[in-house]
């Protein structure tokens, strides 16, 4: 029948064994859960990486040799504030998201 409800996909399109691809939650952006976001003061940062290590959502990314700072991917940041709390130099500030 035609789709007249919230069905996600047709029976014949379901993957056998109802499986999902590895790491595919990257298609699910959790950034819109956030009410506050981390802002990094790059001057004070000592690149210790605690924000990267302790982020429950793994949003901080190693930027490679050209950029020593770890930068938060706001597509996924839920705004918990662990990074700001754990930063030994207090160089991350949580600021209110503008609506």
């Amino acid at each position: 029948m035609d789709k007249n409800n919230d069905a996600l996909m047709k029976v014949k399109d379901l993957p056998a064994g109802f499986r999902a691809k590895p790491g595919s939650t990257v298609d699910f952006k959790t950034g819109d859960w956030r009410s506050i976001r981390p802002v990094l003061d790059k001057e004070k940062c000592i690149y210790c990486g605690f924000c990267y290590i302790y982020c429950p959502d793994g949003v901080y990314q190693d930027q490679g040799p050209e950029e020593k700072h770890y930068i938060a991917d706001l597509d996924f940041c839920k705004g918990c504030g662990v990074c700001a709390h754990e930063c030994p130099k207090k160089c991350i500030t949580m600021v209110l998201e503008e609506v």
């Binding site: 069905a7 996600l8 379901l14 064994g17 109802f18 999902a20």
Partner: peptide, 28 residues
């Protein structure tokens, strides 16, 4: 079988089926 736990093709098995999928899984 290709429906298996395979390091070379690491799929996830046994996912949560929401109201948007449960009916179709049962029919399938």
């Amino acid at each position: 079988t290709d429906i298996k736990l395979d390091l070379k093709n690491p799929m996830s098995m046994g996912l949560l089926g929401s109201p948007e999928t449960y009916t179709e899984v049962k029919k399938a």
